[in-house]
Amino acid sequence: MNQLSLLGLISLVVRRDLVLAMRRRADVLTTLIFFVMVVSLFPLGVGPEMEMLRKMAPGLVWVSALLASMLSLGRMFSADYLDGTLEQMMLAPQSLAIVVLSKILAHWMVSGFPLVIIAPVLGMQFDMSAQALWVLMITLLLGTPILSVIGAAGAALTLGLRGGGALVSLLVLPLCIPVLIFGAGAVESVVSGINAGSNLALLGAILVMALAFMPWITAHALRISLE
């Protein structure tokens, strides 16, 4: 049996996707720059009132992160689908769900993790407190992987469809509403002096559930899309 070990398979696929992303850097930067631009547009649009900006900040950063992560979803499987490598991944004697999980992981490293890193800098534009910035980072660290995991299922279902890019956002955005509520809620509760623990715990629970089920669902969706 030519089965790779779990870690061997994950590292093979993640390394492949990271190398590909590094050779196509423009794609990676689009997501990040979009995020920075959208967040920075709001103070310009609504005016420089500190009190209002501080109040809007958590929700604003989160909504922007959500929109930015939609941008890159279409690319998660489409390039591999078009050049036939996705087909070969299905025909490899390895678990497709684990391959999918690895691709999600690589996708998050490239398009989700940079948002987590840059978010505190953007938060400063809104005069957020140090504590609120920390919680913002933690919520994004828990939340952006959920967006990638749920988004993967949407991307798999719309694979090969014309105009799939817009469709995937319509499919995935409603499913991400709980993530937005708990993510922004955690930051707001810290700002107003309440413990953010319950919101963070709920985010963590969603992440665990999504990681446990979505790769299998996505793998199945890919099989249907490729038939």
């Binding site: 190398v19 590909l20 050779r23 196509r24 078009l82 050049d83 036939g84 490598t85 087909e87 070969q88």
Partner: peptide, 10 residues
């Protein structure tokens, strides 16, 4: 298959 299943970037 019809497609070569190789990546242009690699």
């Amino acid at each position: 298959g019809h497609s070569n299943a190789i990546k242009d970037e690699l």
